[in-house]
Design a protein around this nucleic acid. Structure first.
Lengths: 294, 294
DNA sequence: ACGCAATGTTCGGAAAACGCACATGAGAAA
DNA sequence: TTTCTCATGTGCGTTTTCCGAACATTGCGT
């Protein structure tokens, strides 16, 4: 049978023992030092032992105080963990898993608007493109490009269909239109079949990629912006560069057959819901590629 | 940074979840069911999730409730352990380490008086005669016979000097007085030199023990009581038998040079202090052997 | 000696926690 | 179907806990 003294007093003592100063504990717990002082004294009275010793301006834990700290700190940590695992409030952290380039090219440039709308929510981003494991992965929301079916236990928020097309620096636009084969066809290691896929969907002869291979999609895009060639890119990834005139899409965009979606646990989690709703809104406002035909 | 809700509400929920009934949780925590009900509801509001579901008379934990319980129960157990490890109050358990025969012959016959005086203290006895290791041994109080110096970090309460002398059944008293060598000199394995020590201190010729050897002092005493011989015994161990006429000490008692003491940690532990004070009182009331000359 | 920082103490007020009385709902028994 | 019992829920007033503010005390550094 447990016999616990005032939990509030235990919490105050633990904070004071951890900080070594009652004023710091008071700051952590958002009370005055005198409240901490009284709680610690109250606990000493309840337990019948001194927990601090030494002069006022240089308090030290007693041996009993040290021993109590050994148990209290992990116990309160565990309470905190337990509470965090179920709390569903409108503040706190939100873990978002997202492909790296999408994070950099689309999400991060827009995330400030979510922070403005929900300043109490701290969004933590993790780069990942791998298939979602709803049991093992510890995300709140995962953004992915792919095709249905999505894991049945997750709630799916569609963002936009993926549109792909050749993009290059504006100086290469005429060459691309006249004879695309005259321009180096850049590709990335992660999407080696990008050109073949695009050709098939665009109804063109299968073109092999003749230009350099880049380890990351982001590097390939930078090469294209620098005029080193033309590459196949999804519309969301290059939309801002197109609008800025850094890149151009001489042959337009076509659907790739994949879709961007946000996935979250079906359990009603307010922060996840808020985030997915916000994503959907941003995707809608994002619009379609210029001259999109299908 | 921890962010903990009302600890009181967490405690109420944990008890309700463990018992599966709010009324039982109320009993455990010595409040009414309505207090538990309100605390659980308050916690549900703070966390933003339901923790119980189902009809009033058959509440079940929700999935979130179950998950919270997984963390809360061990955390509260740890808080309890931590508090118990330092609490020094006037109730609870007291661990006493004591030589086995002293336990049986002196302490146990008197312990009921300590229990009467302090019904909230549960005394746990451990038999041991080995030298006290103040760091490794987990006793609150240790009773030992020996000589100074005692370990410096322990507080010493003297109980009585050890007085030893030959004891036998009353039927053998005359023989012992007339010619002690005519009676079997019993000894125990643990004190093989008892007769030689006594002889030297009594100013007699060194007598070798000629009687049976007994593995335990207690067995040897039983043999003496049964008239099988005479043995050397400390006064406290045989005082009650002498008073009852079961044994007699024809040649009286002399100091053995050893002392019985109670040892406890210098730290102010109330139960230990209470116990040592009581021991000292009982030792004083115990008195000296009859006809004690030195 | 003085100033500063840290804790300790007292008092009154605010907030949390509580008991009590009554309400509600579900299941069992008549 | 009705009634009873048991368990939780709700509202109100009371009690207890907790707190801030103001002041006191102590030790250290200048």
């Amino acid at each position: 049978m447990r016999k616990l003294p005032s939990l509030n007093a235990l919490r105050a003592f633990e904070a004071a023992g951890r900080h070594g100063r009652m004023t710091l504990a008071a700051q952590e717990l958002h009370v005055t030092h005198s409240a901490i002082s009284r709680q610690v004294q109250h606990l000493e009275q309840l337990l019948g032992v001194a927990l601090f010793e030494g002069p006022k301006n240089a308090l030290r834990l007693t041996e009993a105080g040290n021993r109590l700290m050994l148990g209290l700190t992990p116990a309160f940590d565990q309470l905190d963990l337990a509470v965090r695992s179920v709390a569903d409030t409108q503040d706190g952290t939100l873990d978002v898993s997202c492909p790296g380039t999408f994070t950099m090219r689309w999400l991060i440039p827009r995330l400030y608007r979510f922070r403005q709308a929900h300043p109490d929510i701290e969004v933590r981003l993790t780069a990942s493109s791998k298939p979602v494991d709803s049991v093992r992965d510890s995300f709140d929301v995962a953004i992915r490009a792919g095709t249905a079916p999505w894991p049945a236990e997750l709630e799916v928020t569609p963002l936009f269909d993926e549109q792909i097309g050749p993009v290059a620096a504006p100086a290469l636009a005429a060459s691309v239109i006249e004879d695309i084969a005259s321009v180096p066809l850049l590709h990335s290691r992660t999407r080696r079949h990008a050109w073949a896929d695009w050709s098939r969907r665009a109804g063109r002869d299968a073109d092999d990629a003749t230009g350099n291979e880049y380890e990351h999609f982001y590097f390939m895009l930078e090469a294209a912006s620098a005029g080193l060639g033309v590459c196949i890119a999804p519309w969301p990834m290059v939309a801002d560069d197109l609008r800025a005139g850094i890149l151009t899409a001489p042959l337009g965009f076509i659907a790739s057959g994949q879709q961007y979606v946000a996935l979250r646990h079906s359990r009603q989690h307010r922060k996840s819901s808020l985030f997915c709703d916000w994503l959907a809104g941003e995707a809608k406002a994002f619009g379609l590629p210029p001259g999109e035909t299908q």
